[in-house]
Design a protein around this nucleic acid. Structure first.
Lengths: 153, 153
DNA sequence: TTGCTATTGCGTCTCATTCTCAATATGAGC
DNA sequence: GCTCATATTGAGAATGAGACGCAATAGCAA
């Protein structure tokens, strides 16, 4: 059971992405497969540069443009979600089975802590009902300084 | 009473900014005064381009660079707050006496609705306590489609 | 009025992201 | 397995927000 949990997850992701590619008449290229693998090989939040660096380290030469293009497809297929960490560039995280969590970001060291909350979801429903909005997505981050950065200043 | 509320508000803003300039050994220039006036002449959310356009329309020729520089001072003096409206550039709003509100943004027409909530504040305190973070600021927006954009699609 | 220096405007620079386009790779049909 | 239409890639140019350097200008204290 345990032994196969990782490969099972990989299969699920691979399957989702293949479905998506099929439905949209997109091809299963080396580049897309490698980017997918790399994205799902860790659970960190990542940006384009990090992903590029990780791929290059493995001698998987994929251009920056292709990473940007593939990330769009991963977002569109809901396999990946974009997160705002208060920096001036986009960060990403896995999306599958990881609903309803928000981010606490240390402005000093960049550490990211995830926290779950149902309150946010209830609040969103309440507000949208009041103003007759149909919600698409929300973005909530708390920026501050983490414990260790507080003491070292 | 009523009659003077607007000019009183203006005086308060002008006063705050003058204090700020004084405290930081900064000069009261034409450009800074005009930008301050323009910023406080409406209650809309605005970006740098809009501000530039509005100033040019009034023949108040101020460079883009000066607007960026002055906005930094307005942020620093807490007269203006930066808001994330899910676009790829910064938007701003008045800050004085307008604490604790969040934004609901229509992804179709760009309309912005403000809503107040104390829940967010409580939630923030709770989460920060749990993870030993010292909060600096938070950012919360709900993106969706407004009533009229829902019907016209 | 003078003179020190903060400030401005212009143009340039950076950085993230998108676009263009020629060369290449995929995969459906044979 | 081979062919061919076309989706995709990589390299580099383009874009757009914002920051920066510098010479010219303007505040303001004396």
């Amino acid at each position: 059971m345990r032994r196969n949990s990782k490969s099972t997850a990989e299969t699920v992701e691979r399957g989702h992405f293949n479905d998506y590619l099929g439905r949209h008449n997109l091809r299963r290229t080396q580049e897309r497969i490698r980017i997918l693998q790399e994205v799902f090989s860790t659970h960190d939040h990542f940006d384009v540069e990090t992903l590029l660096f990780r791929l290059r380290r493995k001698k998987h030469l994929v251009s920056r443009a292709t990473i940007y293009r593939t990330l769009k497809h991963l977002l569109d297929s809901k396999l990946v979600r974009q997160v705002d960490l208060g920096r001036n560039r986009a960060f990403y995280e896995h999306a599958l089975g990881r609903e309803n969590h928000e981010h606490l970001v240390c402005v000093a060291c960049g550490k990211v802590v995830e926290f779950s909350t149902v309150t946010i979801q209830k609040l969103q429903n309440f507000v949208c009902e009041e103003f007759n909005f149909r919600p698409v997505r929300h973005s909530y981050q708390i920026l501050g300084t983490c414990e260790s950065c507080q003491s070292s200043s």
